[in-house]
Design a protein around this nucleic acid. Structure first.
Length: 398
DNA sequence: CACGCGTGGCT
DNA sequence: TAGCCAAGCGT
């Protein structure tokens, strides 16, 4: 028995298979992959740039969602240089609606890193890849194994689910240390030949055969090796602690038009939630309620009618915050609900006309934009929902 | 280590 | 409906 296997047993109490069984597992997995692998756009290339783009997009995102984004992104930015040089507006527009937007900002930083520190040549091994912004243990292993044939694991949620079932591993997946366990275990199992195909095969099996709530044993090489399946306890794996519930937040949004029929847009701060995306002026209702608890607190899921006093408060707020005066009072146009990974937003949008704006603080980053030009601004989904609401508001009126 | 960070599909 | 889940990473 090799030294590494003893370590696995000693440190994590895992009984690894013998060499013959490992070999047979590798053969079965690769044979399954050859017959059943999905035909995906990024599987038709060995270009590390394209593999990288696909892996970043696939983080916490389903394959079907990624495909159209991937096609468009590669067509517009076909190589590291074009990504390094593209403007932030266009970059965010390409990622608009895909979520986790720091991914694409990190990717551009990494592209610039590759140009400057690597002379434009893509790093060709896991260790160097992980020095790039946005490339962690999973993506480093994936790109190294798939694009460069390095014998190294790519441990993601699928891999951990599949292997926690194979070996009945009870460790909590939400702990960082548990990932180290799987890295060590998989290091003993990934084959020298076709490591990239092997890694992708395990992920495909996790996505289609050993799913969170469904186990499909048909045309599936796993059951022969799966201790949890054999004892009919696969549903108990993986062990994962519950996530914290989203926090509810309530906002008013103001769709403010000037006399040229342009809307006031505000660019969000360059860090934090929805960084650098455009929004209509957005106010947490608590901003108002701290002054007077009774003012502007909505009581229903319907768009609230603002009292005369409430409307006065809104005008005062817009004047103070944006040096903006509007001739007409805000009119409710509906309600927008949106769920993030960690927050829940309820937004009540109001329409205002006849706005005039004075001296604007430079750090606010405001712009007037015509409705027809919205396509050149990157909007997150809650803002897109508000635009939809405005459109149907117009349709109902006519 | 715990948390912040999006969105859409599915049950 | 509300919760769970998906090819994670940075701080």
């Amino acid at each position: 028995m090799s030294k590494k296997k003893i370590d696995l047993k000693k440190e994590y109490n895992i009984d690894l298979w013998d060499e013959e069984r490992i070999k047979s597992f590798q053969t079965d997995i690769l044979a399954w992959y050859d017959r059943h692998k999905r035909d995906l756009p990024w599987r038709q290339t060995k270009d590390p740039y394209k593999i990288w783009v696909s892996e970043i997009m696939l983080q916490q995102t389903q394959v079907a969602t990624v495909i159209p984004y991937y096609e468009r992104f590669i067509e517009r930015l076909p190589d590291v240089k074009s990504l390094a040089e593209v403007s932030e507006e266009e970059l965010l527009k390409l990622w608009e609606g895909l979520g986790y937007y720091s991914r694409v900002r990190n990717m551009q930083a990494a592209a610039q890193q590759i140009i400057e520190e690597w002379g434009g040549v893509f790093p060709d091994n896991r260790k160097d890849l992980e020095k790039l912004k946005g490339i962690g243990p999973y993506t480093g292993g994936a790109v190294a194994s798939i694009a460069f044939g390095e014998q190294t694991p790519a441990v993601d949620g699928n891999v951990m689910r599949v292997f926690s079932r194979l070996f009945k591993i009870e460790d909590d997946l939400s702990k960082a240390k548990t990932k180290t366990l799987f890295e060590k275990l998989l290091s003993q199992i990934v084959p020298a030949d076709r490591p990239g195909d092997f890694n992708q095969a395990i992920m495909d099996l996790g996505a289609t055969k050993s799913m969170p709530k469904v186990y499909d044993p048909v045309d599936n090489p796993l059951p022969d090796y799966d201790a949890s399946y054999q004892s009919d306890t696969w549903q108990e794996y993986p062990v994962k602690k519950g996530k914290v519930k989203q926090k509810q937040e309530t906002y008013y949004a103001f769709l403010i038009k000037n006399d040229s029929d342009e809307f006031l847009l505000e660019k969000r701060p360059s860090s934090g939630l929805l960084a650098d995306f455009w929004t209509f002026p957005l106010v947490d209702v608590l901003t108002f309620s701290s002054e007077d608890e009774k003012v502007l607190l909505p009581t229903s899921k319907q768009a609230p009618e603002l009292s005369e006093q409430d409307q006065h408060v809104v005008h005062e707020y817009l004047e103070e915050e944006y040096q903006l005066t509007a001739r007409f009072d805000p009119e409710a146009i509906g309600v927008v609900n949106h769920v993030f990974s960690h927050r829940k937003w309820t937004i009540y949008p109001f329409l205002m006309d006849g706005a005039d704006i004075g001296e604007v603080a430079a750090d606010l980053n405001l712009e007037w934009a015509a409705y027809e030009d919205f396509s050149s601004y990157a909007f997150p989904v809650p803002q897109q929902k508000m635009i939809q609401l405005y459109q149907s508001f117009l349709d109902n009126r006519s």
